[in-house]
Amino acid sequence: MNIGREPETNGMVSSEWAKSGCRLPVIAQCDFQQQESNDDKKKQTTTTGIVVPLTNDIRYTGPDGEIIKPIQGGEWSLNNNSNDSQSNKNELSFYMNFPEELIRRDVIINAGAILRLEGIMYSTTQLKEMNTNFYTARDQKWDAGEELNSIEKRRTAPLKWNPNQNKWEKESFPEDTILVRLQKETNLKRAEQKIKEINQERPNPKDISLDCGPFPGIVDDDGDGDGDVYFRKKGKVLLQSGGNGGIFGQWSINKQCVIGTWSAEPINDKPLSYY
């Protein structure tokens, strides 16, 4: 987690909170454990479980050196969008509890605060499908562009000498009608639009975790559970509950507010665990 003032934070907390631009970095190693649901309808769209910290504390550096504070896990839920055939992402949310106050300069998390973390995951199967669709659309764009270039080259080709007519003539290509050209231009625009639509969902490799790891409720290529996923970087950290008040009176309203971002990387020697 990278806790501090975000653009969405303005107006939702005291103007003094994280005013300096200071950030509070928090690294928590966690295991995501799945819980079985008896609700068949809910099971079709949502996977739930609990977040179990692998250590019961977090560590960060303050003005006076290393600070160690306890941390507690909470529930997690995964909306795998199984009813939406057009969706290529999985929406994850989970809770982390901080029994003691965290302070780093003017970034303060009150004792008893509960943070809600929201983010997006992509299974390796979903990424492969998006990449395949992208490459197909890209090839269609290249083919349409090449055909248009060929038509243009023939249209602007130099005159050829006709010895029978004893004059220079423009070579005729009956197949290059206006209708054919319009059709090729339409194919090119369709392919470009398709690429644009795919890239709106297809993440940039720089925007996802460096490595992938198994996660409960994600179907792999074999149709089994615990398929591999990549986490999208810069998920939202929201204050779910502010605890027992605090310095600066920073939580001016009870509504959830964005107080930072988070990302995750798999701990590859510990399946279903992330930090």
Rank of each mutant, 00 (worst) to 15 (best):
K167N: 14
L210K: 12
I178S: 13
W168G: 01
G65D: 12
Q86P: 00
S82I: 03
Q240H: 15
Q126K: 12
N254L: 06
G245M: 01
V13G: 01
L272E: 05
D226P: 03
E101F: 08
C212P: 00
W262N: 04
M130G: 06
I71L: 09
S172A: 12
M96C: 13
K43W: 02
G243I: 11
N79V: 08
K255F: 04
N97L: 13
Q250K: 05
N268K: 13
D84N: 15
L159I: 06
L117Y: 02
I68E: 14
A157P: 03
T55P: 01
D226L: 06
S252C: 09
Y275D: 10
F98R: 00
I103G: 06
L115D: 06
N244W: 13
E197W: 03
P99N: 08
L78R: 04
K233E: 02
P203Q: 12
Q240M: 09
D222T: 14
G235T: 06
N80K: 14
N56C: 07
I195L: 12
D57R: 12
L115F: 00
D139M: 13
Q256Y: 05
T132W: 04
R154H: 12
I120L: 04
I67P: 03
G49F: 01
N90V: 01
I3W: 01
T186S: 12
N133M: 14
T261D: 05
N2W: 10
K236R: 11
G112Y: 06
K167I: 04
A144V: 07
P25Y: 10
I247F: 12
R104D: 09
L127C: 05
I267T: 01
P174H: 03
D57T: 14
D64Y: 07
P205G: 00
R105M: 10
N133D: 15
K234V: 03
K184G: 04
N131I: 07
E201I: 03
N2S: 11
P205C: 05
D224C: 07
Y95C: 05
E75A: 13
